[in-house]
């Protein structure tokens, strides 16, 4: 059965067909998005070294220059960036 196609090949094809639309949804990585947000709020961040997700729309960001920021969305829907 299965026209002689191995199951693992079918599984890989199915995984790729699911993964490609998900990748096409947003071309900006989370790190780049967080870095852009930090810079947009007037803070310095040359490159994201690490990020830790605290919850929905709530991140702790560490930049390579040593700066650390708390990026989150407050209850009014505003993006906030606080230097740690």
């Amino acid at each position: 059965m299965g026209l002689g196609i191995p199951r693992n090949v079918l599984g890989a094809a199915a995984a790729m067909s699911l993964a490609v639309p998900a990748m096409g949804g947003n071309s900006v990585s989370m790190g780049d998005d967080l870095k852009a947000t930090v810079v947009l709020h007037g803070f310095a961040c040359d490159q994201i070294a690490s990020k830790k997700r605290n919850g929905d729309s709530d991140y702790l960001v560490a930049c390579k220059d040593g700066n650390r920021y708390h990026v989150f969305v407050d209850p009014r829907g505003r993006v906030m960036v606080e230097k740690q």
Binding site: N26, S27, V28, S29, D33, L34, A36, T37, V79
Partner: peptide, 15 residues
């Protein structure tokens, strides 16, 4: 647009 992330879009919307 895919050129902006979610946080960036929300920040720009705030501005």
């Amino acid at each position: 647009t895919r050129a902006l992330g979610v946080f960036t879009k929300l920040s720009l919307k705030n501005e």
